[in-house]
């Protein structure tokens, strides 16, 4: 009865009530930030004296915001591609290989995900300073790839788990080369895993703050770095406007993901 929604009896209002409160808690900052971005008060007084679009105008007229968004986009796109390729290969090896220390290797691959980002950031920052790569696009890509890769390995690994390798072998028997078989049979079959890997990798880079703070230079800032710097020195509602656009972008991504899943079912 505790696991039957209809027969929860007295517990039901409690659980529903709590869930509603949690939902409000989760949605509150998101709605609030959107509302704040239309408020006219420069000093974040809410409710504001009047409503305005001026923070969006400021946002779009300041090329630094646009430039940092493009930088983020570029880095996240490159990271996504590399993460999928390396992640697919690694997942394939971890999934099918029977070499020594496979489980240890899997754990090693996933460590950057669990390790405090600040440790990785500081260590990489030191390395890149020595290599003369601090503040370059390459530094950004390497740093973000490290934290994106575990997501790819997990997503694609899970998908490979559910894929019957004998189908790939059948293709090889029919005359395809091993790589041809993998590209034309295996990759499409695990495409949902690759798609998940792509989304997670993209978000891991796009949304990343701590590594980015250490990797950034005056001329190379991702959007989160720009927001961070603005938060530390300006607090202007332009941050709310930028955040609102990011939220809209996230919702769009979620809708796309949902549609993709629906499409696969049909």
């Amino acid at each position: 009865m505790l696991l039957d929604f209809e027969r929860l009896a007295g517990l039901r209002p409690f659980l529903i009530g709590l869930t509603v409160v949690v939902c409000l808690f989760l949605i509150l900052p998101i709605v609030f930030i959107a509302a704040l971005s239309f408020g006219s008060s420069q000093w974040l007084i809410f409710p504001p004296p009047s409503w305005t679009f001026k923070w969006y105008q400021t946002l779009f007229s300041d090329s630094r915001w646009l430039y940092s968004a493009l930088t983020s986009l570029k880095i996240a796109a490159i990271v996504t591609v590399l993460s999928i390729v390396l992640g697919f290969l690694a997942a394939l090896g971890l999934n099918r290989g029977s070499f020594m220390g496979r489980e240890a290797l899997r754990a090693l691959f996933l460590t950057p995900m669990i390790l405090p980002v600040v440790v990785l950031a500081v260590a990489l920052y030191a390395l890149f300073l020595q290599l003369g790569l601090a503040g370059t696009t390459i530094a950004f890509i390497v740093a973000h790839l490290l934290i994106a890769l575990p997501f790819s390995i997990i997503s694609i690994g899970n998908a490979l788990e559910g894929f019957d390798k004998s189908i790939e072998d059948a293709a090889i028997l029919c005359g395809a080369s091993p790589w041809e078989a993998r590209l034309r049979v295996t990759v499409p079959a695990v495409s949902h895993g690759i798609f998940a890997a792509a989304i997670f990798s993209f978000l891991a880079s796009w949304d990343e703050v701590v590594l980015a703070i250490f990797m950034a230079s005056p001329t190379l800032q991702t959007l989160p770095v720009k927001i961070w710097a603005t938060l530390r020195q300006d607090l202007t509602p332009v941050i709310a406007a930028a955040s609102t656009i990011l939220i809209a972008f996230t919702i769009l991504l979620m809708v796309l993901a949902a549609l993709f899943r629906k499409g696969r079912k049909v």
């Binding site: 790569l133 370059t136 696009t137 390459i138 005056p218 001329t219 020195q233």
Partner: peptide, 19 residues
């Protein structure tokens, strides 16, 4: 990667306190 970090030689950076 096909490219390296590029900084425009004619640029200079001025740093202050923001706001």
């Amino acid at each position: 990667f096909g490219f390296a970090g590029q900084a425009n030689a004619a640029d200079m950076v001025f740093t202050s306190w923001g706001g």
